[in-house]
Each structure stands twice: as structure tokens, then as C-alpha cells.
Nucleic acid binder design. Structure first.
Lengths: 365, 365
DNA sequence: TTGAAAGCGCTAACAA
DNA sequence: TTGTTAGCGCTTTCAA
């Protein structure tokens, strides 16, 4: 059943403080003091006001309050991820952190369309947001958002821009790669290949750099034929394994993959070739995307970018900026390694977790 | 580099209409008329005001405007999906539709915690939202949200509640199953098994019902051993195939799976047994989740719940309700079938798309 | 301890 | 055609 009919707009008239005052037989000023627990008031009066307010379901109008204080207690978040896998945990954590402080979040999806972005921005400025968060599907540099009233706190998360007044928060991709490859080296692997995504991604270049750096630091040779950039897909993971394990080549004994989809494709391809994971070849992926890591056989070890933590950090910073602190520049937040069966010969999937304690901060490059 | 220092809150003072009026040397009332394109004004005056406004970057304060009109031009959306796969397309489409009308969306995540939900609701009431959307991770019935000012337009999407004044929008799971199974029957399959999720889900019961109904309508027997409820995972899909294709049993020639993960697991298991998909066994999944359908070998045919369309419809209905129309009850929105290689013997993955034209509307059960 | 009133930024009704 | 003003709901001085 689906009923429709129009009786005109429901007369939703929320009670005002004036109503409370009238019923409690006090002045508006007194009612305000009572409800805001400030000013000197007789306890009796205070109680009566509060009592009445509760009875009639009074809820102060934030709009009026904001107008008065010129603090809207709202922030905007503009995303270009079409709200996908990456921005979601970030947004969720951010929203959680801000809701704690009574700050509400306007959600705007720009779908990589600059026109929509401007439109949203204009709307948000009209709402007099106290801060702005910009996020994306990839952590690469983007043109700074704007223009808008100077002084608005802006944080880019999983995204970065050349904005001297804004803060950018991105994962430490290079450090994550170091974690992964060090782990493989620690298992005694010496022929570690790197299958990864398209080179136009910052993440690909940074992760490769961490890979190369760790090999060098471990005294292992850098073999150009062991570096395979391609696509972010399972199919590419399978193809790459086809190449690496072709007859007549020296086969790798470990794979560091640029994401979990590649890693899973690789695991599937190896199994089909009768190559045991992790005994013959250990695998570590990237993203720690549960959908992939759990479904893979064996479950995938993977680098976690800790997107939730990034979201919380973004919230924290934004609150500080709203409070008047000036924060800017680029911060790279540490990744973590989650070890599972694909790189853990003995007791599979114990879920041991290694933390990178060092916070890596370096300049945007 | 990451710089921090506190110079106190940046004095962000947005220009007001008073500023515009002063600079344009007119009264506030005149400025207002000019900017809002109403009232009779000399073209010259109008132009001057607009000119000045543009120069100083004037943007009307929606807060003040809202206070005056008692229309906040905002709606709240409370989700319990921890913003996942299902609510995302819905929210995105909804936001898009509402942004068109200048309505901004407050995003609140309640993570299935009633306390957080109430807290968010209270905040939203304070913001004087014009409407509310509630969404979830599964389309099952939930307790009605509230209480709050009566008359607030409420739409449940991918979620439903016994609220006589609210509208609930859910996918037509049964119809989707009919589409899938009819398709398999149309391919000449006669032994169609159904591997699906936990029976506590409404979706599982409804899809089963569509499955059973279609078998009956096609004169095919309902074999109890061909119905396998379990978990929503790839592992279950693989296990179920193990059961169905055990030696000494009559094997199915088609599988209708309750979601794409199950379907993919099943496809993997069949391939490993040397059973050809779709020649020996055709497969149709549910959700049309690209991550799964595309990575599967062969690519999966799947039922699409058209979540984006649900989001748009929710936006549409909400706008109508805000405009005063009363809409309530439960609406089931049609699913679509996307045919790919897993059920298409000849030319694989042509992406032919069949639409169910009938809109199924029935009472909540 | 309480009341009165100004003002936040804007719109709309009414005067001029 | 333009100006004046009340009022949206709230907080915060300042008086009483």
C-alpha cells in the first residue's frame, strides 16, 4: 500500500523559548538563563522553566543561535569518490568525531565535476560552515578548492592541494611499502616482485620507491623485470603472474602487490599453477580491504592505510583550526601491516598486527 | 612540512546585505529587492546593487533566511550501513537530486546504535531540517525513528518501519528473483538450485519466494535439496557447490545465488571441478556489484536493485512531501537483470539488459 | 533575582 | 521607485 494525498504542508511549529517563558510565567531572558545554566537564578525558577521546556518538547533553534553567535556548528565535506571505498571510512570517522562536539556535517558529492564543486561550495558558504573537508578517490594532488572567504579552515584528506593555508592528510604510501617488503625480507624471501597499478598514480610511484629502498637496504638486487605496473584489477594480477612465472625465467618467491585486488588475482593464478602460497610464494597486498583479503585463498596479508584514523585526525585538526589554531602543510599518516595466511607459513591467519611507530612526515613531492 | 601556530580565530566576517546597501547607496530594503529580483526597481539601481554585491563577494546568509522563512533548506539522513555498499549509491543519488533544489544534506551515521541515533535526531531537530531520510544495511523492518515534531516528512530507504506517516522504499526482491529464474528457465535449464544467505533476512525469504513461484509457474519441481541458505560469503558459495555436486547426486544445471559473492564462490568452485560455466551450469547472482561481477570468471549475470534509482525516488518523494503532499506506505521498486557471461553461452558479456517494466507494489508483509 | 531591549542578517509589508 | 520597520528565535548586556 502506498497512500498519497495532499492536505497542504503540515503545520510543524516547533515551540520557541517565548512559549516556554509564557508557560513558565517568566520573561524570555529568564527562560534563556535557566535553559543555558548561566546567570544567577532562583533554583525554583530554573526548575520550573526546565520542567516546562521538557513538557512541551522545547528544542532550541540552532539557526537562531548560529545567527547570533556567527558560528553555524556545521562543516561541509566535498568528496569526489562518488562516496566509495576510500572516502567512506574517512567520512564516517570524521562525522563521528565532529558529532561529538555537536557539529553537523553537510555531505556534498562533486563526482569530479568542477562545476558541481563550485556550486556546492557556494551553497556551503551560504550555510556559513565553520570548516571544510575535501576528499577524493586517490591521494594525488588536485587544484586548490575555492575561492571563498579567506580564513575558512580547510583540510584535504586522502587528497592534497597547493594551498598555503590548508592542511593535507595522506597515507604514507612509501612507509607502507617498506613495511610490506621488510616483512617479506624478514621471511627470508630474496626474489620479491612488485605488481602494481598505473604509474600515473602518486601511490604507485611512492610504493615502488619504498619497495626499491627496502630491497637496497637489505642488499637485494633491484630487478627491472620484477617491477610490473599495470591496472588495479584482479585480471592484471593474474596476467602478471603469467608473465613472472613463464617457463625459463627465475621465479619470484614473494609478491608485493599494489592493492588487494591485484594480490588476489595473483593468489588465484598461483593456485591454478599449483604453486603454494605462502610456502613457494608469499604475498602481501595493499588496502586491507576485507572483501578481498578474507575471500582470498589463503587470506591476504595487506597494508592498511588506516583511513578511519585519517578521518579522526582530520576531525581533530579541523576542530583545532576552528578554535583558531593555524595548521597547514602536508602530513603523511602511518600505515600498518596486517599479516594473514598469504605470508605466514606456520599458523595461518592469526591476525598478528605490526605497527609502524614512526610517524613519517615529509614534504609533498 | 606541517606548520602550526595560533594567531587566534581568523576574522572571517562575511559581508552582509547592509554592507551592500551602504556601498550601493541605497536602503537595505532596496538592496534586498534588487538581489531577490522582486519588487519594482529602476533597472539602474538594480544593476548597481548587483554590481556591488558581486564586487564584495556578497553571499546571502542562509541561516538568517531560514530563520525568517522557517524553512531550513536542509534535510537529514541517518544511516546504519556504516556507509557501505548499499546506502552509498542511494545517498549519492539522493544528495544529487536535493542539491538541484538547493537543499543540503546532513549526514549522520548511527552505526546501529539507538543512542547515537537519538542524539543525531536531536541535533537534526535543532537544525530544523525540512525532512529526514533513514537508510540501512538491509531492507528489513526496523522500529520507527522518533519521536520528533509530528509532521516532519520521513522516508525510509532500503529500510522500512511501521510508521503510518512515513514512506518506505525497498527493492522488489521477489520480482528480482523472478527475473533471474525466468531467465534461467528461458535458457532451457530445468534443475535450478538456489544458494543464498541467512534466512533471518527478509531478502532471503522474498527471493526464495520468487524462485519457488517461478519454478512452479514453469512446471518445474521444487526440490528441497536445491535450496541452500547459509552465509553471504564466497566461502559459502564454494561449500554449497561442494554439496550440490557431490558424487551420486543429480547435479543442477543452473544456480540462482542470493548475492554476487556467493555466485562468485560458486563459479570458482565449479571451474575447479572442471564444470563449465555457463555451458554445464549457468549462474545468476544478485546485487550487480561490479567488484564481484567483473572479477569473476566468467563475468557474472546479476540482478540489479537499482539503488541509485531508489535514491532518486526517495529524493523526489521527499521533495513532494516537503511541498505538502502526504505520502506513506511501502513501495517496492523494480529490479533489473544484467546478463553477462555466466548465463550467456553464445557471445559472452555483451551486457544486454532486460528491464522489468511492471512496478510491483504490494503491502508490507 | 528578574525584566526589558538591542541585535545577529534577512525579508516583506507598509509608508513615503 | 525607494525607505522604514517589524519580526524570525535566540543571547546578552543593562536596568530595575
Amino acid at each position: 500500500m502506498s497512500a498519497t494525498d495532499d492536505r497542504g504542508p503540515g503545520q510543524r511549529v516547533a515551540p520557541t523559548i517565548r512559549d516556554v517563558a509564557r508557560l513558565a510565567e517568566v520573561s524570555i531572558g529568564t527562560a534563556s538563563k535557566a535553559l543555558n545554566a548561566n546567570g544567577r537564578l532562583r533554583q525554583e525558577t530554573r526548575d520550573k522553566v526546565i520542567q516546562v521546556a521538557r513538557q512541551i518538547g522545547y528544542r532550541p533553534n540552532d539557526l537562531a543561535q548560529s545567527l547570533h553567535r556567527s558560528k553555524s556548528m556545521t562543516v561541509g565535506i566535498i568528496t569526489n569518490d562518488s562516496f566509495g571505498r576510500f572516502s567512506f571510512p574517512i567520512v564516517e570517522a570524521l562525522e563521528e568525531r565532529l558529532a561529538d562536539q555537536g557539529i553537523a556535517v553537510f555531505m556534498c558529492n562533486a563526482t569530479d565535476d568542477p562545476a558541481r564543486e563550485r556550486q556546492h561550495l557556494d551553497q556551503l558558504m551560504g550555510k556559513r560552515i565553520d570548516g571544510l573537508v575535501v576528499t577524493a578517490r586517490r591521494a594525488d594532488k588536485r587544484p586548490p578548492i575555492g575561492p571563498f572567504a579567506h580564513g575558512l579552515p580547510v583540510v584535504y584528506v586522502y587528497s592534497q592541494a597547493d594551498d598555503p593555508d590548508a592542511l593535507s592528510l595522506v597515507p604514507d604510501d612509501e612507509g607502507g611499502a617498506v613495511l610490506a617488503v621488510s616483512h617479506l625480507v624478514g621471511l627470508g624471501r630474496t626474489r620479491i616482485a612488485h605488481i602494481t597499478g598505473p604509474e600515473r598514480f602518486d601511490a604507485v610511484r611512492l610504493r615502488r620507491s619504498g619497495y626499491a629502498r627496502t630491497l637496497a637496504a637489505s642488499g637485494l638486487p633491484a630487478r627491472p623485470d620484477y617491477y610490473l605496473p599495470g591496472a588495479w584489477s584482479e585480471a592484471w594480477g593474474r596476467d602478471a603472474v603469467g608473465t613472472l612465472f613463464a617457463a625459463g625465467r627465475e621465479h619470484p618467491d614473494a609478491l608485493f602487490c599494489g592493492n588487494d585486488q591485484i594480490a588476489r588475482g595473483a593468489a588465484d593464478a598461483l593456485r591454478e599453477r599449483g604453486i603454494d602460497v605462502p610456502r613457494d610464494v608469499a604475498i602481501v597486498g595493499f588496502d586491507n580491504w576485507e572483501v578481498m583479503t578474507a575471500a582470498s585463498r589463503p587470506p591476504l596479508s595487506s597494508v592498511d592505510m588506516n583511513l578511519r584514523a585519517m578521518g579522526l585526525e582530520a576531525g581533530e585538526s579541523l576542530l583545532a583550526m576552528i578554535a583558531g589554531k593555524r595548521i597547514s602543510g602536508l602530513r603523511r599518516l602511518p600505515c600498518t601491516l596486517q599479516v594473514r595466511g598469504s605470508s605466514q607459513p606456520d599458523d595461518k591467519d592469526k591476525g598478528a598486527r605490526r605497527h609502524s611507530n614512526a610517524v613519517h612526515e615529509r614534504k609533498s613531492g
